[in-house]
């Protein structure tokens, strides 16, 4: 059972965070709120998202799993304006969810959760370097790099106490060093890994709205991004596998 209302902007933010990686997901509901964890079809990136009940205007739910077509949701909420409320309602074991937004009442058929990939286990990865940066600064750096390349190296220079992003195109090169005072904080450690900008661009767009993003880095290891949504009542974690650096 689910009966909830939520500010359209907050819910859109959550849906956008998921849709950056996957077109459909298994949403878990319980007393405390909703959550999902999923890897993309290529097994390269993972998202973990939770939205506490405090993020909702009203919230009541029993423990359940819903198969959600995220791409469809994204389109539905596209028409919601500022200050609109979205209401979600579903009976126990129902196949459909009622969604109301901006005077439109949808009845959305849920996906069979058996057809959605199993939730991945949260991996335990030791990532020694940690950067806390403004979401907007991070997104701008990723956007700048995407102009000249499809991959980017993220690293920490412990000696200079800097966080850097370097991208190498076929003919061009870009580098951005963030000194310690440009960052919220830096836990220096030897770290450098290369990532695909195809993924980072989409994640960056979502992260640009976060006041602070925590980045965890290692050497040729995945990167983990961790940030709040819904004014602190929700949380997102992205994990992205690295590319191998060519010599």
């Amino acid at each position: 059972m689910l009966k909830a209302t939520i500010d359209a902007d907050i819910f859109k933010e959550a849906i956008d965070a998921i849709s950056a990686l996957i077109p459909e997901c298994r949403l878990h509901t319980d007393d405390d709120g909703i959550s999902t964890r999923a890897v993309d079809t290529a097994n390269v990136a993972m998202i973990g998202l939770s939205l506490k009940k405090e993020a909702f205007d009203s919230y009541k739910a029993s423990k359940s799993q819903l198969g959600i077509d995220i791409s469809k949701m994204k389109n539905i909420f596209g028409m919601a304006g500022k200050g609109d409320l979205i209401s979600l309602e579903m009976a126990d074991n129902a196949q459909k969810m009622s969604v109301s937004v901006h005077g439109y009442n949808y009845s959305i058929t849920l996906l069979d959760t058996n057809t959605i990939r199993k939730d991945p286990n949260p991996p335990t990865i030791n990532l020694p370097g940690k950067i806390v940066i403004k979401g907007e600064d991070l997104n701008n750096a990723l956007k700048a790099a995407a102009v000249i390349s499809d991959k980017i190296a993220l690293g920490i220079n412990p000696k200079d106490q800097t966080f850097y992003l370097v991208a190498e195109g076929d003919t061009d090169h870009i580098r951005r060093d963030f000194s310690k005072d440009e960052l919220v904080s830096l836990t220096p450690a030897e770290a450098r890994s290369l990532f695909s900008l195809d993924y980072l661009k989409d994640m960056g767009k979502v992260m640009s709205k976060a006041a602070e993003v925590e980045i965890f880095l290692g050497i040729d290891h995945p990167v983990r991004f961790s940030f709040d949504i819904a004014g602190g009542n929700g949380h997102v974690e992205y994990l992205l596998a690295p590319r191998i650096e060519a010599d």
Binding site: V39, T41, A42, N43, V44, A45, M46, P120, N121, P123, I125, D150, L194, S196, D198, H221, P222, L239, A241, P242, R243, I244, E245, A246
Partner: peptide, 14 residues
């Protein structure tokens, strides 16, 4: 095409 040349998957870390 599924993973670009050189792209690792998360499988190695699960």
């Amino acid at each position: 095409f599924t993973v670009k040349a050189g792209q690792k998957t998360l499988e190695s870390w699960f």
